[in-house]
Amino acid sequence: MQAMLDILGGLVLVSGTVFLLLGALGLNRMPDIFNRIQAGTKTTTLGTMLTLAGIGLMQPDWSMKLLLIGLFMLFTNPLSSQVLARAAHRGGARKTPETEVDRYAEDHGDPS
């Protein structure tokens, strides 16, 4: 039984790190800071969740602590990227020319 869970956990683990790698790729390919934050937050959040879940499947007695780390990341990751995105916008970060509309700049003035 545990042998099956080990294999399953290993597969979940690898799928999680694949998402981490995709996020890293996105961070390098995206043209401006806002798109980079998007790529950086989402994929790493799911990637970490899957990694922790995979380890949890291999070590069921650790699952409480892994769950705690996962929940913590789930709540803090989006918060820090929100704060960073706002800071970047207020600091007048360059937006890619493909950007079609910016309602935030319309309402608050555009420092860039």
Partner: peptide, 29 residues
């Protein structure tokens, strides 16, 4: 390593901060 490249290349401080954030998350993994 990929994120480390973004961290070193920047170009703006905000790019480095998001790269740093992602580096930490990968470190936690």
């Amino acid at each position: 390593l990929l994120v480390l490249y973004r961290f070193l290349a920047g170009p703006k401080p905000a790019d480095r901060v998001i790269a740093f954030d992602v580096l930490t998350i990968i470190s936690i993994t």
